[in-house]
Design a protein around this nucleic acid. Structure first.
Length: 130
DNA sequence: GAGATGACGTCCA
DNA sequence: ATGGACGCCATCT
């Protein structure tokens, strides 16, 4: 058996994939958040990618898209499935992210978690605001 | 060209 | 609730 390889992958049609991600993220209303996984589920699997692989990797791909997000994309409204802000290994943009969200009225609990029932949003069944 | 480098989610203990 | 294993590579220096 070959040795373990990295638990990372990248999308085959990166630019296109990113484009779709940004489009979705742009629709997230102020004061609401969406998870990487939820965004990923909106995007159909590209042909050459196996279903297992796609399910395993797509959320990370969304993360990659956010890292490359152009100006105007509300990247800070994207968090992980645990309702927490994902830590960046090589910068502190996650600190800024919290400030931006708090400025929009998003609340964090004592452990730094956001209640997705209250602040989560999905493009399909739009949760009503208050 | 080689080496470092990644914004995650699900399942199981 | 929380911690660890697994998924299984393209892109940028």
């Amino acid at each position: 058996m070959p040795p373990r390889k990295p638990h990372f992958t990248s999308p085959p049609f990166r630019e296109h994939f990113n484009q779709i991600v940004w489009e979705i993220v742009t629709r997230i209303p102020r004061g609401k958040v969406m998870t990487y996984g939820a965004i990923a589920k909106q995007i159909p699997r590209p042909r050459p990618v196996g279903a297992t692989h796609y399910n395993a990797a797509r959320a990370r791909w969304v993360g990659g898209a956010m890292a490359a997000s152009p100006k105007g994309v509300p990247w800070h409204r994207v968090i992980n499935s645990q309702g927490k802000i994902s830590i960046r290994p090589n910068n502190n943009h996650h600190v800024k992210q919290r400030h931006l969200l708090e400025a929009e009225g998003v609340e964090f609990d004592y452990r730094g978690r956001i209640d997705l029932e209250r602040f989560g949003w999905s493009p399909d069944r739009r949760k009503r605001n208050t």
